[in-house]
Structure formats: C-alpha cells, structure tokens
Design a protein around this nucleic acid. Structure first.
Lengths: 307, 307
DNA sequence: GTGAAAGCGCTAACAA
DNA sequence: TTGTTAGCGCTTTCAC
C-alpha cells in the first residue's frame, strides 16, 4: 500500500506537490508532474478513499432504508433510486429494516455519525417525530405523505387511483370488498380505507380487513379467509395473483380481484391494478436526497383496467 | 458538530481519556467517565464514522455489482447477501453495472482505493483475468463457476437441474427446443447449451437461440420468433410467463415452456422450472466476502415439475 | 512552482 | 488512572 507520503519521500517532492500533481488542482511544473505520475504508476499508487473522505469531510453515501427487498413496492423504489444515483457518483447503501424500530433508529444514528450524507426511508415504523429530530444531521426523505410539512418526501398520491378503482368496483355492483394489507396501522392502510369510505359513503367493517399480506405467497395463505367477499382489493399484483390462484385451485367462484403496481403476474391474469409509479417516486426521492431544499412531491396513482 | 477534540478542551481531559471514556476501551476513573459522558450528551456528541474508519484503516463496506436490480436472478442473490450482512454490521453498497465493462473496472478501482473491503460480482462482463488482478486489493467473490481456481465463488451448479429438465423434455418427445437468453456469450448460455448437447446428443442449431431476454416483458416481445418450437427453455419464470401470455393472446397452440427460479408467475401457470437457489448463493457469497479464505462453493440446481 | 505546516477526527502505544 | 505523542492519508492555505 503506497501512500502519498511514500510518493513524496521517494520523489523528493513534498506531499503538497504530489497531491497537486495527481489531483490536478493547483500549479505543478510539467517535469515534476511527469516524474510524480510515473512514480505513482510504477508503485501502483492510488489515493485512499477513506482518507479523502475525511479530508473532504464527506462520504458520498446515501442510505436507503428498506423493510423488505423482494417486495415490488421496495424494489421499484430502489430501482428508481439507483437509476438516478448512477449518474451522480453517489453510492447507495441498503439498510434492511424489517420494520424494526431499533434498527431504524440505528440508521438515523449512523446519519448522525456521518456514515451517510442523506437517508431515504422507503417506509418506516418509527415515529415521524423522531425522524424530524434527526433532520439536523442531514437530509432525510420519506416515501409517504408526511404529517409535517418540514420534511422532504416523494410519495404516491394514491387517492386518485384508489378512488377510480373503488368507483369502478361500485359500478360492478360490488358491495362487500375485502382488503389485503401488510400491516394494520400504516399510511397505506389508512389512505385506502379513507378513500373507500369517501367513495362508497360507508364505513369499512373490521371483518373486511385482512393483514399480514407481505410476500406473494401470503395471498395464497389468506385465501380461505376471503371466500365471503364479492371483490378483493389487494396490496400488490403478486399477492392478487396468489389469491386468484387459491380460488382457482379450490374451484371456487372468483371474486373481482384488484392488484397494485401493474406487475406481470397481474397482467397475465388481466387483473385490474392501481399503478402507484414507484419507479418515479424512487427517482425523485434520490434527487431530493442530494438537493438542499426541503420539498414534498406527490405522484398521482393510476387505475388500470385492461392491459 | 462537536468533535472529540472539543470535548477534550471543554472537559479539561486529554483526547485519549475522552476517547477511552466514550469507547469503553482502557481505564478511566468513574468521575472522569461521568463528567465526559455527561458533557458528550449535553453537546450531542457522536464520533465521526469517517474518522473512525480512517483510524481503524477499514470501512465496513461490501460492494455488490449488479447488472440489473429487478431481474429475479439478481434480486434473489441480493436478498441472500442482505440476509447475512444484516447480522454482521457490514454495509452493502449496490453497484449497478448494466454489464458495462468500464463501470465494472471503476468498481474494481474503488476496491483498490479501499472504498470497499470486498466486492461481490453477481455477474460480470469484464474478463476473469482482469478480476484476478484486483484480488490483491481485497476479497472478490464471483457468482458463477470461474475458470481459475484461485478466486472465491458461490454459484449454481446448473448442470443437474438442466439435465433433468432436458431429459424430461426428451420424454415429452420434444425435438425442437427454443432457448431464451439474455446475452449470447455468457457462462449461463454456455452451460445451458452444453448440457443440452450432452443430454440430447446433438448440437444446438443457431436458429434455436434467441437472445435479448432480460426483463419479463422481453418474453412477450420475443413471442413472434418462437412459433416454430415445440418447447421453450426460458431464462426465468417471469419471462416464461410472458411467452405463455403471448401465445395465449394470439390464440396459438402453446409449446411446452420451462422457466427458472420457481417464481410466482410460473407457479400460477404451472410451468415447470429450474430452481437455481440464488438466495442461498447470495448468502454464501457474503460469507465468502468476509472470510479470509478463497473457496468455491457450488449449489445444485433443481428441476421442479409440479408445483 | 514548491514546500512547510496545519488540519480533518479519531485511535493506540508508551510514559508518567 | 491519565496525558503525551505519533499516526491513519489526504487537502489546502500561505509563505517562499
């Protein structure tokens, strides 16, 4: 491991000159530059990234907190983030959370320690208030509609897509919609139920709500609990497809099934779907992370019927 | 931003004592420790991660080179890697490559610069030789069967699963198999063709090979080129499902379609599939990355018929 | 054009 | 138990 100091000693120039010669900042004579560069090549020298970061006072790391990786929601956002990060020289560090508050807090602490320049929460369990308190250590971006207006966010404005979906369900004379969620309490859950209530002008009964739908196969597992409904509003196409599959295998008449994210599995079965444009949301989240402004960007969801 | 130096000055103790008091390494009197800790809390002090890394001489970063993110192959490996990294305190940095050799080289250079402690290539385009040359800068793990035995790898031993699949195809009297690949030249491509040749005892004709199958929808796009075959061997379930879909929509008789990775889309359509166990491969790749040994681990693929 | 020196923030060996 | 000192590797200001 040759260091800049080594080069300085061996070449006879000072560390400053060597640094200038190699970085291209500041004046160095042609001869000196040539000597130093040749020596650097010969000794297989390369500047140490950590030392540079310390001297510059900043890593080019952005942390992305993801509850799960395979979930379409998160993998789409991630893809959007990578899309954009790519051109900028920032590194994306994946921080798996599994909705563990302690973990989420650890990641916030790492932001404080300057392990990251910014943090993107694709979702969170920890209180919004706690997150707000960490903003002083660096930009934090949320991927849902925050209560506070003083934190950056890029999120799906789901109301529009949901409203269109529910109106369509209404037109199909569905009166008993079953809902599939990952968690009982979450921004997604509440916005779904609220939009339903507004569209249908009636409250959702507790029996209509089924939780624990996280991975594709959960749709299959939950099948037995869904026979009473005339329609199902699932939280992703993959899960919707699994529900479909359960009914098919049990030779039961299928309810109308609506998915989300416009994925391949849903397309195959021609299930209606709400596309929340998470790719775009990820892209915007990254841009917010490297910008100095605090802004909130809403992306309108879209109900897709025939694909 | 309070630094350790600030704490030292304000508390009247030396930097060394402050460091010891806060890190817990070495002897510090109760009183001193209390004073320092209180002051640290009061001033909202936290050690700077970059400075620590420099002092320790190492980041806890592992870079993972991924050509694409949404591809099932890569997202499964990634999930396996995260699975394991999770318990260890290592951070996983995603490095999108899109099979760009320059990019891949840049990532190797970053390893050299100590931006990462180890590098995992889930796939690569750059020559194996080049990669070998960078091993002196840190552990590098490949996710395919390398020619050289002096580099670590965790990979799918696809032969077994492929052989079973081709034997089964043979039993179904398929004589004209179409192959879907992402790239024409790749380790996957060659092992597939070779296993086929061995099982069928005949060469693959160039017309049997279709490339450019990367994303799910590519299966649909390639549909028109596949009508001549009595069976299709696709490079993933998602792509296989899309092929299925194209035939269905065009009301054409379907060939036998075999997918890979045992994904939901394939399960829905009851397509046979070769499960390459990429999750496990990812887990092992991570363990190799943090171990000091050079080892090669092969995971046997599995042909799955009825799911 | 070049170099000395200070600084980035922390750790650790060695004395005291 | 605590402080002194050197060091991690690089950047940058400011004289010369």
């Amino acid at each position: 491991m040759t260091s800049l100091t080594d080069l300085a000693k061996l070449s006879g120039f000072s560390k400053a000159t060597v640094s200038r010669a190699l970085s291209g900042n500041g004046y160095v004579s042609f001869e000196a530059r040539k000597i130093i560069q040749d020596l650097a090549n010969e000794l297989d020298y390369t500047p140490n990234a950590i030392a540079q970061e310390l001297a510059f006072g900043t890593t080019k790391n952005i942390g992305v907190v993801l509850p799960y990786v395979k979930h379409p929601f998160f993998s789409q956002i991630l893809e959007g983030i990578l899309d954009k990060s790519f051109e900028t020289g920032y590194k994306i560090v994946i921080l798996p959370s599994n909705y563990d508050q302690n973990l989420e807090l650890q990641y916030l602490e790492q932001l404080r320690k300057k392990a990251f320049e910014a943090l993107i929460f694709t979702s969170r369990k920890i209180s919004e208030e706690t997150v707000l308190n960490y903003q002083k250590y660096g930009p934090i971006i949320l991927c849902h509609n925050p209560k506070s207006k003083t934190i950056s966010a890029s999120y799906a404005e789901r109301e529009i897509g949901y409203r269109d979906a529910f109106q369509w369900l209404k037109k199909q004379n569905c009166t008993n919609v079953g809902f599939l969620f990952s968690r009982y309490k979450s921004p997604t859950t509440s916005v779904t139920l609220q939009t339903y209530t507004e569209t249908y002008q009636q409250m959702v009964r507790p029996e209509q709500i089924k939780t624990g739908a996280v991975f594709s196969t959960d749709g299959y597992k939950l099948g037995p609990e869904l026979t009473q409904f005339d329609s199902i509003f699932a939280n992703s196409d993959d899960i919707a497809a699994n529900v479909w599959c359960w009914f098919e295998e049990n030779k039961l008449p299928k309810p109308i099934i609506i998915g989300q994210e416009a994925l391949i599995a849903g397309k195959l079965l021609k299930l209606p779907s709400v596309d929340n444009h998470f790719l775009q949301i990820g892209r915007l989240a990254f841009e917010l992370a490297i910008s100095k402004e605090i802004k909130q960007l809403a992306i309108k969801s879209e109900f897709i019927l025939h694909r």
